[in-house]
Design a protein around this nucleic acid. Structure first.
Length: 536
RNA sequence: GCUCUCGUAGUUUAAUGGAUAGAAUAUCUCCCUCCGAAGGAGGUGAUGCAGGUUCGAUUCCUGCCGAGAGCACCA
C-alpha cells in the first residue's frame, strides 16, 4: 500500500527536522484535486510545511503540494497504473470464530434474520481476504417455548412436520393459543417434556421439525451464497453445559440472589433461574465452552446478533473472562450488533400477517430482476451492507429494493460490462501504448479541478487495498460497498466518455485498465458475498 | 426513572477532528447509426436546537427536543 510508504517517509522527515513522535495521519483526500494522499503532519507537529516537504523525497511521488495547512501528494502516473493491489494480510495466522445467523428453528426466517447472515458472511470473507483462518459457526435455537408452541400446533392441527410452510403455521397457531391462554399450561407441559425428553411422540415431532427447519435454512443460505457452517452448536447442547459451569462457580464468580444465581457486573444478570434452569446468559457460557473445545487455538471470537443484545454481551463476556481466565487470556471476544430492520408499513408480526420471509423477498425481487436470482441477491445484500451497523435499515415493501443507481445491480452491471469488454478485446489487435501522462489526462485548465474520466478511474483504483484493510480492521463491510460504488461510477463515466476498442484495435493500457477494474470489482463483490455474474 | 444507540436534501444514505458536506432516489433537462441505456452528462435540494472545546466540529463535550433499544429469573 502506498499510504504506508508515505506515512513512513513523513515520519522520517519529521524526525529529521527534530519533530518526531507526533501522531499524524495520512489519508485519502475527499477531493482528488487535493492529491492521491494528504497529511496533516505539519499542522500537528507545528512545523513549517515547506521545511518538512524539503525533506520528503518519495519514489513514485511526482509532486508534493503545500496548500494551507495540508501537504498533498500526487503520485506519478506510472506509479498509479503499475501499483500492485495487494491486500494487506493483517489477520495472517489468526484463527477467527464467526458465529452468525443463529435462528429460532421452526419459525419462518424473516428478512430480519437475513441481516445477521449477510453481515456475518461478509465479515467472514473480509477476514479471510486479509489472511485469517475463519471458522463459521451457527447457533440455532432448538429448544424452548418457540419449539413447544410449534410442537403443540403440529400435534393439535395434525400438520406435516416435513413441510416448512406447515411448520410456520404450527408456530403461529401455538403462539396464538399460548397468548390467548387457550393452551398456556398444555404448552408449558410440552416444553418440560421436551427438555426432559420424557415423551417419545413429542420428542419425535420436535426432531422432525428441527430437521426440516435446518434443511430449509441451509437451502436459503446456499441461495444467498453463504458458505457452509463449519460447526453448528445447538441451544439444547449449550444449556446443560452452561448450567453445570455456572453451578460450579457460585461463590467465586456468581452469587445467589432471591433464589436465582446472578452475575453482578456492569449490570446484574440472572444466569440460573430460581428453579435452577439456565437462562440465555448461562447458555452463552455453555456455548463458549463448546466453541473453545472445538477450536481451542482460536484468537478472536466474534458473535453477530441483533443490537438489542449489546448490553447483554458486555456483561456475558465479562463473566466469561472471569470463568475462563486461561482460555481467554490474550484473546479477543467481540460482538457485532446488527441493525434493526424497520418496515415503512409498521411493525412486522405474524398476527398482522405482514411478515416478509427471506424467501418471499427473494422471489418477489427475482421477478423484478427478470428472473435473475443472482441479481436479486445482490440487491438485498447491497441494501444490508451499504450502511454502517449503527443505523437501522429501513425497508419499504412497496418500493422494494432499488435495482438502479446506488445498488447491488449497479455494481454487478459495471462488472459484466468490464468482462464483456475484455471478451471483445480478445478479437481485437492490441497496440502497445505508453500510459498517457497526467498532464495529458487533465482536461481544460487546472482551476476547474477537473480530471479526465480515465485519470479519475485510475486514481480511484489505487485505494482498494486500504479500503479492504480498514473494513477488515473495523469489521465494517460498508466501507467496501461505498468504495465499489465509487469505482463502478468512475468506470461507467469513463466507459461513456472514451471508446476502448476502435476499429478492431485496443490499446494495451486501456485494456489493462479494464482488467484492473474487473478484478477489483470481482474481488470486492466477493468480499461482500455479492455474486458477480458474467452476463446480465 | 437509569443506561446505550441514532437525528445529514422530500426519501434512503456517505464522510478516519480537516479542504467547496459526497452519492442515490424522486423531480426537471439532455445523450443509444458507436465496445452492454440495469448506463452517462447537467439543474434543484441537507448536518434537529442551544452552548462549549479546537487553528478547524456532521464528527468530541454539556443541555434540550425527537426516534429506537436494554435494564432479574424470556431468547
Amino acid at each position: 500500500m502506498f499510504r504506508s510508504t508515505i506515512e513512513a517517509a513523513v515520519r522520517d522527515a519529521l524526525q529529521a527536522i527534530g519533530a518526531g513522535g507526533v501522531v499524524f495521519i495520512v489519508e485519502r483526500p475527499a477531493d482528488m484535486a487535493h492529491g492521491d494522499y494528504s497529511t496533516n503532519a505539519a499542522m500537528i507537529a507545528r512545523v513549517d510545511a515547506r521545511e518538512l516537504t524539503a525533506q520528503l523525497h518519495i519514489e513514485g511521488v511526482e509532486r508534493i503540494e503545500v496548500v494551507g495547512k495540508f501537504i498533498n501528494f500526487f503520485l506519478s502516473h506510472e506509479t498509479i497504473v503499475s501499483y500492485k493491489q495487494d491486500i494487506p494480510q493483517i489477520y495472517e495466522g489468526k484463527k477467527v470464530l464467526v458465529e452468525y445467523t443463529s435462528p429460532n428453528l421452526f419459525k419462518p426466517l424473516h428478512i430480519g434474520n437475513l441481516i445477521g447472515n449477510i453481515l456475518g458472511e461478509s465479515v467472514s470473507r473480509l477476514l479471510e481476504a486479509t489472511g485469517a483462518d475463519v471458522k463459521r459457526l451457527n447457533y440455532p435455537s432448538d429448544i424452548g417455548m418457540t419449539i413447544a408452541k410449534s410442537v403443540w400446533g403440529l400435534q393439535e392441527l395434525e400438520l406435516n412436520p416435513e413441510d416448512i410452510a406447515e411448520l410456520g403455521k404450527a408456530y403461529v397457531a401455538g403462539n396464538d393459543a399460548y397468548e390467548s391462554g387457550e393452551a398456556k399450561e398444555k404448552i408449558e407441559e410440552i416444553n418440560r417434556a421436551l427438555y426432559e425428553n420424557s415423551n417419545a411422540e413429542l420428542s419425535a415431532l420436535r426432531k422432525r421439525g428441527i430437521a426440516t427447519s435446518l434443511r430449509h435454512l441451509h437451502q436459503l443460505c446456499e441461495r444467498l451464497g453463504t458458505k457452509k457452517f463449519d460447526k453448528e452448536i445447538f441451544e439444547s447442547e449449550s444449556g446443560p453445559v452452561g448450567q453445570n459451569i455456572v453451578k460450579e462457580h457460585v461463590g467465586d464468580v456468581f452469587e445467589e440472589s432471591e433464589g436465582a444465581v446472578v452475575y453482578k457486573g456492569e449490570q446484574t444478570r440472572v444466569f440460573l433461574t430460581s428453579q435452577g434452569l439456565p437462562t440465555y446468559e448461562a447458555k452463552e457460557v455453555g456455548l463458549f465452552e463448546l466453541k473453545t473445545k472445538a477450536y481451542p487455538d482460536f484468537d478472536i471470537s466474534i458473535t453477530v446478533t441483533g443490537k438489542e443484545q449489546q448490553d447483554f454481551f458486555r456483561v456475558v463476556f465479562d463473566a466469561v473472562r472471569k470463568l475462563f481466565p486461561d482460555k481467554t487470556a490474550g484473546k479477543t471476544l467481540a460482538h457485532i450488533p446488527t441493525s434493526f430492520l424497520r418496515l415503512t408499513t409498521g411493525k412486522m408480526s405474524s398476527r398482522l400477517g405482514n411478515v416478509i420471509t427471506g424467501e418471499s423477498l427473494l422471489e418477489d425481487l427475482t421477478r423484478a430482476t427478470r428472473g435473475r436470482e443472482d441479481v436479486a441477491v445482490g440487491a438485498i445484500k447491497y441494501t444490508v451492507l451499504k450502511s454502517g451497523s449503527t443505523k437501522d435499515i429501513l425497508f419499504d415493501p412497496e418500493k422494494s429494493l432499488s435495482l438502479d443507481g446506488d445498488s447491488g445491480p449497479y455494481l454487478q452491471y459495471a462488472h459484466t460490462r468490464a468482462l464483456s469488454l475484455i471478451k471483445a478485446a480478445k478479437e481485437a489487435s492490441i497496440i502497445a501504448e505508453k500510459p498517457l501522462s497526467p498532464a495529458a489526462g487533465r482536461k481544460g485548465d487546472a482551476s476547474e479541478s477537473g480530471f479526465s474520466a480515465r485519470t479519475t478511474l485510475e486514481r480511484t483504483l489505487l485505494h482498494f487495498p486500504e479500503v479492504i484493510e480498514r473494513a477488515a480492521k473495523e469489521l465494517e463491510p460498508h466501507y467496501v460497498t461505498t468504495y465499489l460504488t465509487e469505482l463502478a461510477s468512475a468506470f461507467n463515466s469513463w466507459y461513456a466518455s472514451e471508446r476502448v476498442i476502435v476499429d478492431g484495435k485496443v490499446s494495451s493500457h486501456a485494456l489493462g485498465l479494464v482488467a484492473a477494474v474487473e478484478q477489483t470489482l470481482a474481488k470486492g463483490l466477493q468480499v461482500l458475498g455479492i455474486p458477480a455474474p458474467e452476463e446480465m
